[in-house]
């Protein structure tokens, strides 16, 4: 467990402050009752407070942990719930750049799917997306399986959602 929550705390405080700032644009009280700005204002304030709690508790824990590591090498015993050991380290949202690139590649494929739906129609886009993603995840799968799954998913989703359930999915230039 990473006990360094400094960046997270700061992030939460920023969200809290932005919320407060935005909520000031709506009226706080209207006659004798809370207005539209009341609830968001308090939510923003609570977030800011929680952000500070995160900062303070993180700083305290980092300090105790450092002290222990200097004085003794006895490792803290994790309780049965969290088996991970507390470590000090810059908390980053990603475990590494290769992960990040994989995540973004996946997101880009998804975004392409949605963009293609309006143009090529849902059925073709779904087939292409499925083929592309399987190939991306496991380039060694035989092309028969890749193509087969792609076509099967596209046809099944067409039959199920468009024919049976009458969902008006984007049709695109080919009309399906």
């Amino acid at each position: 467990m990473n006990v360094n929550r400094l960046p997270e705390g700061i992030f939460v405080i920023i969200i809290g402050l932005v919320t407060i700032w935005l909520s000031l644009g709506y009226s706080y009280m209207e006659r004798f009752t809370p207005g539209p700005g009341f609830f968001p204002f308090w939510l923003g304030l609570l977030l800011t407070v929680l952000g500070f709690i995160m900062l303070v508790s993180s700083a305290a824990q980092v300090r105790t942990l450092r002290r222990q590591q200097v004085t003794s090498d006895s490792r803290p015993v994790g309780n049965e719930v969290t088996k991970e050991e507390p470590v000090i380290g810059a908390s980053t949202p990603f475990t590494g750049w290769s992960d990040l690139s994989k995540v973004f590649a996946a997101l880009i494929i998804l975004v392409l799917l949605v963009l293609a739906m309006d143009w090529l129609g849902t059925t073709i886009s779904v087939a292409l997306f499925t083929i592309l993603l399987i190939w991306f995840l496991n380039p060694r799968v035989s092309w028969k399986i890749v193509l087969g799954t792609g076509v099967l998913v596209a046809v099944a989703s067409y039959l199920l959602f468009v024919v049976t359930l009458e969902v008006p999915l984007p049709k695109g230039i080919f009309g399906f």
């Binding site: 779904v126 997306f129 993603l133 399987i134 995840l137 399986i145 799954t149 989703s157």
Partner: peptide, 11 residues
Amino acid sequence: PFYLLAPVVLV
């Protein structure tokens, strides 16, 4: 396998 399941679930 995940590489087949993931596209289906995403669709």
